[in-house]
């Protein structure tokens, strides 16, 4: 039954998402063209002031548009969650012959999948902009890459290896934390207040965010207090790398813990505290 629910969740989000994906691709093409134009004009020493203003504005808009894309994915998933669970549709959803756990898991998986897909599309878009915008981008990259790799080999140490390993887990934990917190806020919002579900949800989320950044501050002050990111150099990073690794590890655990906690509280509410209408 999970597969069936997942199919419908995925379809609903995809139907709205692919349009935005296409739009961002279009924006990327435009952005690439604008970038190329700017570069060509600069190299040809053309002095058309108006053109530069418009081109930069255009490029700026493209970048903003691209940044909004992941946000659109988040909003679509949240809308799906809210509508499917806590609007009148909930009367149908929660009387289906499907386990509550499956219903929730499907929503989480959908959110995660579309976050990953959105990032992937974004990376492709940025690549498009660079390829179109910079003449001979590939050759430039081919030249740059060995240089970067050499630098990297110089400063490499075990803690960096650990960082690289931990980092994807950190991302995953962070994503899952966000997803489960958003979902939990909607659930609690609808349990507490029948009329102002969304407002209550927002309020709870703000509260949790503040609490979280507080905890984060405490953790960072213990671990990376002597790593001031504003004035970091490679050498400082290399010698104090272990602390940064610990910081990353603790953050991963923190996010992961919050994600799991939020998940189970949410599940409990969905199973036992449901109160539609």
């Amino acid at each position: 039954m999970f597969n069936k629910i997942f199919k419908y969740d995925f379809k609903f989000v995809f139907r709205l998402w692919w349009i935005y994906a296409l739009i961002t691709a279009g924006l990327a093409l435009i952005g690439g063209a604008l970038l190329r134009g700017i570069i060509e004009f600069i190299t040809a020493n053309i002095d058309n002031f108006l053109f530069y203003i418009l081109a930069f504005l255009g490029f700026f808009t493209v970048i903003i548009g691209l940044c909004c894309f992941p946000l659109a994915a988040v909003i679509i998933c949240l809308v799906r969650y809210y509508k499917n669970f806590y609007s009148d549709e909930g009367y149908l959803t929660f009387t289906l012959p499907v386990k509550r756990t499956s219903l929730l898991n499907s929503k989480i998986l959908t959110f995660l999948l579309f976050e990953i897909m959105s990032v992937a599309v974004l990376i492709i878009d940025i690549y498009l902009i660079l390829v179109i915008g910079i003449k001979g981008f590939h050759t430039e990259l081919a030249n740059l890459l060995p240089m970067l790799l050499d630098e990297l080999k110089e400063i490499w140490n075990p803690s960096l290896t650990a960082d690289v390993i931990i980092f994807p887990f950190l991302l995953l934990a962070s994503a899952l934390m966000g997803i489960n917190l958003y979902y939990l806020c909607f659930t609690v919002g609808s349990v507490i207040s029948k009329r102002y579900k969304v407002l209550a949800a927002l309020g709870i989320y703000l509260g949790v965010s503040v609490a979280m950044s507080f905890i984060q501050q405490i953790i960072s002050s213990f671990t990376i207090s002597n790593l001031m990111f504003t004035s970091i150099t490679y050498t400082e990073f290399a010698t104090n790398g272990a602390e940064f690794t610990i910081y990353l590890g603790l953050m991963t655990l923190l996010y992961g813990g919050i994600a799991i906690g939020a998940y189970f509280i949410n599940l409990h509410c969905i199973k036992n505290k449901l109160n539609l209408s």
Partner: peptide, 19 residues
């Protein structure tokens, strides 16, 4: 009460639950 009972119960609520 659970998914098994939902499978044999057909419920018509007071309000429309259609998307």
């Amino acid at each position: 009460i659970g998914p098994q009972t939902n499978g044999i119960i057909s419920y018509l609520p007071e309000r429309t639950y259609l998307s």
